[in-house]
Simulated assay, not measured.
Amino acid sequence: MPQFNDTELTAAVIQSFEEVKNPRIKFLMEELVKSLHGLVRKTDLTFAEWEYAIDFLTRVGQKCTPSRQEFILLSDVLGVSMLVDAVNHREREGATETTVLGPFYVGEHKPMPHGTDVSPSLEGEKMFVQGRVTNLAG
Rank of each mutant, 00 (worst) to 15 (best):
F4D: 05
N5G: 11
N5F: 10
D6G: 04
D6F: 12
T7D: 15
E8P: 00
L9D: 03
L9H: 04
A11P: 01
A12Y: 12
V13D: 03
V13H: 02
Q15H: 06
E18G: 08
E19L: 14
V20G: 02
V20L: 11
V20P: 00
K21G: 13
K21A: 15
P23G: 02
P23K: 01
I25T: 13
I25K: 07
K26M: 01
F27Y: 11
F27N: 10
L28R: 03
L28K: 01
M29P: 02
E30N: 02
E30Q: 04
E31G: 05
E31A: 11
L32H: 06
V33M: 04
V33R: 00
K34W: 01
K34L: 05
K34S: 03
S35V: 04
S35Y: 03
L36Y: 01
H37E: 08
H37V: 07
H37A: 12
G38N: 05
L39R: 00
V40R: 00
R41C: 05
R41Q: 11
K42F: 10
K42T: 09
K42I: 08
K42L: 12
D44F: 07
D44G: 06
L45T: 09
T46F: 07
F47T: 14
F47W: 13
A48D: 15
A48K: 15
A48T: 15
E49D: 12
E49M: 10
E49R: 08
W50H: 11
W50I: 11
E51V: 14
E51Y: 14
Y52V: 13
A53T: 08
I54T: 10
D55M: 14
D55H: 14
F56L: 13
F56G: 05
F56D: 10
T58S: 11
